[in-house]
Design a protein around this nucleic acid. Structure first.
Lengths: 206, 206
DNA sequence: TAAATTCATTGAATTATATTCATTCATGTG
DNA sequence: CACATGAATGAATATAATTCAATGAATTTA
C-alpha cells in the first residue's frame, strides 16, 4: 500500500491548520462568543463551508486547540517517572498551570465552558470523557506512588486524584475570573506544599 | 407617600416570579442552552416580549436564580460571628456547597459559564464584579479572625481569601464535570481540615 | 490516456433563536 | 371622566450557525 492521495492530503492538512490558527488568533483576541465562523473563515482565507469539513460544531475547534494540551500532560507524566512523588506532583501541576497561561485566558474560558458538561471523545483510541483524561494522568502519578512504596497500599487514589484535580481546576477558574491576575505556574510549589501534600499526608510513608 | 399602584405592582411581581420559576424548572430539566425564551414564556404563560420586560438578556435570569445564593452567603457570614474561626469556615463552606446542590447541576453550570467572564453588577448598592462578592464574604471571615487574634496581623487575607475560594470553585467545577458524582456538602469538614487549615496554618495563633 | 470517481471547496439558502418594537389595553392620576 | 403610564403582546428583525447542491481538481480505473 503506497501512499497515494498526496496533493489532496497535504492541502487538506494545510487548510485545517489555517483554520485552527485563525480560530486561535481570533478567539484569543476577542473571545469565543465574539468570533463568528465567517470571521474565522475569512481570516483563514477559506469559506465558511470549509470550516464544517473539518469541524462538526463551532465548539469543536477548541478541542483541537487543547488536544496538544492533553498530549503534553500525558507525555509529562511519563517523562518524570524517575523523580520522587513530590517532584512528580510539582512537575505535573506546573505543566498544567503553565499550559493555562500558554493558551491564554479566552481559550481557557471556553475550555472550561465546554468541559463543564462532559462529552465523550476519543483519546488515544479509547472513548473517555474529558475530565477522565486529566484525572487519569493524576491517578497514574499516585498509582506509581503506591508501587514505589511512597504511599500506603490503602491510599484511595481515585478519590484523591479527583480531589487534587479539583483544586487545580479551582486555580484555573480563579485565574479566568480574575482576568489572569491571580495564580500562575510560579505558584506551583506553594500550591503543592499547601494543598496537595496535606491531602496526601495521611497516606505518606516517607 | 402612600403605596398606590397596587394592582400593577403585584401583577408585575407575579409575572416576574412566574418567569423565574419557569426558567428554573426548564433549565434544571434540560440545561440552559436547550431552553429557548419561547419555552420559558410558554411555561410561564406569558409572551416572549414579557421576558424582556424583566430581563435584558437570556443569561440574566440566571443572576436572579443565584441572587438568593449570594444573599444567603452574606447572611451566613453574619450569623456565625460568635463561633471560632474553624467553625466559621466550616459553616461557610458547608453553605456554599449545600447551595450548589440545592440549585442543581444545570443552573450551577450556567452560573460558572456566566462567572468565568466577570461582569459588573450591583450588589447591596455597590458595583462589584461577581467573584468579588464570594471573595468578600470569605475575606470578612478571615478579617474577623485577625480582629479576634485567631490569625496573626500580617496574614495576607486578600491572597488567602482568593485562594480558598478558588478551592471551593474547584469543587464546584469538579461537581459539574462529574455530573454531580463527586463532592458535596458532606465532605465539607474534610475539605476544611485538608485544604483550608493547611493554608492558614502558617498564620494561625491558636 | 481518457473516463469515472472521489473529495475538498464554495457560498447561497436554510434554520434557529435571541432581541426589538409598534400597538394594545388595563391601571393609575388629577 | 380624560389623560398618562407601564405592562403585555407577538409579529418583525437581526444575527449567526449550519446545511447542501454544485463545482472542479486530484485520484483511480480501465
Amino acid at each position: 500500500m503506497e501512499k497515494k492521495e498526496k496533493v489532496r492530503q497535504v492541502r487538506a492538512a494545510e487548510t485545517r491548520r489555517k483554520i485552527v490558527a485563525a480560530a486561535k488568533k481570533l478567539i484569543t483576541e476577542k473571545g469565543f462568543e465574539s468570533v463568528a465562523i465567517e470571521d474565522i473563515a475569512r481570516e483563514a482565507g477559506v469559506s465558511t463551508g470549509s470550516f464544517y469539513t473539518y469541524f462538526k460544531k463551532k465548539e469543536d475547534v477548541i478541542e483541537e486547540l487543547n488536544r496538544s494540551n492533553f498530549l503534553l500532560l500525558a507525555k509529562t507524566v511519563n517523562e518524570i517517572r524517575d523523580k520522587d512523588l513530590n517532584e512528580r506532583l510539582k512537575y505535573y501541576c506546573r505543566e498544567f498551570l503553565a499550559e493555562i497561561e500558554r493558551v491564554g485566558i479566552e481559550i481557557c474560558r471556553q475550555w472550561i465552558r465546554n468541559n463543564i458538561t462532559p462529552t465523550e471523545m476519543e483519546i488515544e483510541g479509547k472513548m473517555t470523557t474529558k475530565y477522565d483524561h486529566d484525572y487519569l494522568a493524576m491517578r497514574s502519578i499516585l498509582d506509581e506512588g503506591i508501587k514505589r512504596g511512597e504511599l500506603s497500599d490503602d491510599t484511595p487514589i481515585d478519590d484523591l486524584a479527583l480531589y487534587i484535580n479539583a483544586q487545580l481546576y479551582g486555580l484555573m477558574i480563579a485565574w479566568c475570573m480574575t482576568e489572569g491576575k491571580m495564580i500562575g505556574s510560579k505558584q506551583t510549589d506553594s500550591f503543592v506544599e499547601k494543598i496537595v501534600k496535606p491531602v496526601l499526608m495521611p497516606y505518606s510513608r516517607r
